[in-house]
Design a binder for these strands. Structure first.
Length: 719
DNA sequence: GTTCTAGAAC
DNA sequence: GTTCTAGAAC
């Protein structure tokens, strides 16, 4: 008996098939019995070995027709494989190999074929051949039951329309793509030990469930009337690190999927979990079956979501990521795995779309072609989703409030599916997939899309919350007709695109934090913020600063959409700037009438923290408990603060306003009267409370505003 | 934007 | 020991 000729033939190193054939031919020539230990799953592969027999020798096949589950389990556990196949890598390779399996037949040239389907069969076969003498022979024919040639993951293959009507795996054109080594992605925390599709799980707990429900196997081929239907693969949201109850989560998934399917057709969804023993997959399968969810459009898959193609041969253009609120890599689990698989390109692409995401929402990120996720797996879009958090160790914990939790989780899935639908509808997707013109979005998809655009939050409370949260998808109905550059019309993206298209290239900020939209919301809907707003006009609103840095501190905020900061201002805005300035003066006068000691400055921060252009009107006492940091002081008392009259002059002269560097915010603390330096904020504040020095001369050209002329000779009246 | 906090500064 | 701040967390 010759152990694995191919693997050991070359001085202990992996040999070639040619070397194996040559060695076998030589041995036969010498009158020896030869045993080839090789996978030989395909007819072509083994035909050359069969030819070796010819008239010289009988050719037997001993087929280890073990369940895929066992093959993978053994290959995963195997160490020191001569062909460097072990661990998760082996599992993926076995999966792909088994897809091509064609059991041998006598007419291929074999005189005897022994099928082994369990360990006992194998032992019997080994004994039979072990005790053969050189001149002994065995009767021809087929020994042992030939199985139904079941392919690995037949169910999931049917789901992906890779099975012909006879149940044989069709030759997937994509399968010709070269298998890529998994070395590059083997280091991330997401342990891809054993990625396997559901269809191979006979024998284990999930497999039994599957046999009962048989979700994957039932779809009949006739159900698939279209090719390349857009398919979204998504992980279970919130049930891992966010510790959301799995039973409740599975209810939400099934409900969300069911609702989605009732609104849109011709798209498919796959719930993915790494472990074949996944409780979530079991729960969802059982519940989906009970609820009669269309199993030709919804399936589950056990495997690595970042290796759907190379690990399972499945082609999903869109995958979802269970993101964190900062949309950053790390943290482990699916998020770490997807960012790791997506590489730096995905990270950059994500940053281009948004900085943060709110619970219950999702954000589409087109995966750059340079990303391994795109190149290797064919993933065109990643949709980041943030679900509710029940883990006290993580932000925004809902503390077992499952009423809210389920609502937010449902919103998260709805947002995900809606965004996925918008991708399916996008011109980009259609272009990419219209080569064979098999898929065209149907009227019902379009209809659904319109419905999504017009969707309204269920309560005003929710709406308000959604409006201030970045990335929510129901708050942008209008102004969505701009050129999207071919990107899908995700609502989250609409908002971002809107910001981009309306902001100039000179904009100092490329993105806004999640907190930075409140002012914008107030400016757009001041009637909803009566408590904050003290004056509403067509061009601007006036409101008290929520954290005033002086006795009097108000914001005159422009209502012009898309005008977010100083860098956005152009000549055409000059009349509005003048009106805002006049309003600021009017309010300063009003305040002065109550407190004649007040002196004001009106101006803009070079780089604001809040979106929507706003003019600060601030009294120069800086007597406020909210002024606690160096940054606070320097934002009003260095050139970072751009006086309104200077800005207007610059716009008039140059058409652009000068933006001062943010580094000024960390410069030393100096008194705004006498310019003395102070080591920290408390010392500075105690100084300015008593400093009697006049204001510096550079502020005496209209920058300082006061209305009580008597008793002060150093300030210049604005009147 | 604010709040929190570790560690620097005193 | 307390005060203060920068930077992380939210």
């Amino acid at each position: 008996m010759c152990p694995s000729i191919k693997d050991t033939i070359a001085n202990g190193k992996a040999g070639t098939k040619a070397q194996c054939l040559q060695s076998a031919a030589n041995s036969l020539q010498e009158g020896k019995n030869v045993l080839i230990d090789r996978c030989n799953l395909e007819l072509e592969q083994r035909s050359e070995f069969v030819k070796l027999g010819g008239a010289r020798a009988d050719v037997h096949a001993v087929v280890l027709d073990l369940p895929a589950r066992v093959c993978i389990s053994r290959s995963v556990q195997r160490t020191g494989h001569e062909g460097n196949l072990q661990g998760g890598k082996a599992a993926a390779v076995v999966n792909r190999m088994l897809q091509k399996k064609v059991l041998p037949c006598l007419n291929e040239g074999f005189s005897r074929i022994t099928f082994c389907q369990n360990d006992d069969d194998v032992k019997t076969a080994v004994n039979t051949y072990s005790f053969l003498g050189l001149f002994d022979s065995l009767p021809p024919g087929i020994i042992g039951p030939k199985s139904a040639d079941a392919k690995v993951q037949q169910g999931i293959m049917k789901f992906f329309k890779k099975v012909d009507t006879d149940g044989n795996c069709s030759q997937n054109p994509d399968a010709k793509r070269e298998y890529v080594s998994q070395n590059s992605a083997a280091k991330h925390e997401y342990n891809e030990n054993n990625p396997r599709p559901m269809g191979i799980e006979e024998g284990n707990e999930v497999g039994k469930d599957e046999q009962k429900n048989d979700m994957l196997r039932k779809p009949s081929v006739s159900d698939f009337q279209w090719n390349d239907a857009p398919t979204l693969a998504f992980p279970s949201i919130s049930t891992s690190d966010f510790q959301f109850n799995m039973d409740k989560a599975s209810d939400v998934i099934v409900e969300a999927v069911s609702d989605f399917f009732s609104k849109v057709d011709k798209v498919k969804l796959v719930l993915v979990d790494l472990s074949p023993k996944s409780k979530m997959l079991s729960l969802v399968k059982v519940k989906a079956s009970k609820k009669n969810v269309d199993t030709t459009r919804f399936s589950t898959y056990a495997g690595d979501i970042t290796r759907l193609y190379t690990g399972g041969g499945l082609h999903c253009n869109v995958i979802a990521n269970a993101s964190n609120w900062r949309l950053k890599p790390g943290g482990g689990g699916v998020n770490a795995a997807i960012f790791s698989a997506g590489g730096e390109a995905l990270e950059i692409a994500t940053k281009e779309q948004a900085d943060t995401i709110s619970p219950g929402s999702s954000i589409i990120v087109p995966v750059p072609r340079t990303s391994p996720l795109n190149q290797r797996e064919g993933v065109a879009y990643v949709i980041h989703v943030l679900g509710p958090n029940m883990n006290p160790q993580r932000p925004n914990c809902l503390k077992d409030d499952y009423v809210k939790g389920c609502k937010v989780l449902y919103e998260a899935y709805s947002s995900l599916f809606n965004n996925f639908a918008s991708i399916a509808l996008s011109q980009n997707y259609q272009k990419e997939h219209s080569g064979d013109s098999k898929y065209e979005p149907t009227k019902s998809v379009s209809k659904f899309f319109e419905a999504v655009v017009e969707c309204q939050p269920s309560s005003s409370e929710q709406k308000n919350k959604r409006e201030v949260s970045y990335g929510s998808d129901c708050n942008k109905k209008s102004r969505s007709n701009g050129d999207s550059g071919g990107l899908p019309r995700s609502f989250a993206m609409l908002e971002k695109e809107e910001q981009k298209s309306e902001r100039s290239d000179h904009s100092a900020k490329s993105s806004w934090g999640s907190w930075a939209h409140a002012l914008h919301q107030i400016a757009m809907h001041p009637e909803k913020h009566n408590r904050d707003v003290i004056e509403i006009l067509d061009d601007f609103v006036v409101l008290n600063d929520l954290y005033p840095k002086a006795k009097k501190h108000i914001l005159v905020t422009s209502r012009l959409p898309g005008l977010d900061c100083l860098a956005d201002i152009r000549r055409e805005h000059l009349p509005m700037l003048q009106k805002m300035h006049a309003a600021g003066l009017k309010w300063a006068e009003q305040f002065s009438s109550h407190d004649p000691s007040l002196v004001f400055r009106l101006g803009y921060h070079s780089v604001p923290s809040m979106r929507q252009l706003h003019l600060h009107v601030i009294s120069q006492d800086f007597d406020s408990t909210h002024l606690r940091k160096k940054k606070h002081w320097n934002s009003f008392n260095t050139p970072f603060f751009r006086d309104s009259i200077d800005v207007q002059e610059e716009i008039k002269r140059n058409g652009l306003a000068t933006i001062k560097d943010e580094k000024l915010l960390s410069s030393e603390l100096r008194c705004h009267h006498c310019k003395s330096a102070h080591p920290n904020i408390p010392r500075l504040k105690s100084h300015i409370a008593t400093c009697k020095a006049p204001f510096p001369s550079h502020l005496q050209n209209g920058q300082l505003v006061f209305f009580a002329l008597s008793g002060s000779s150093d300030a210049v009246s604005a009147i």
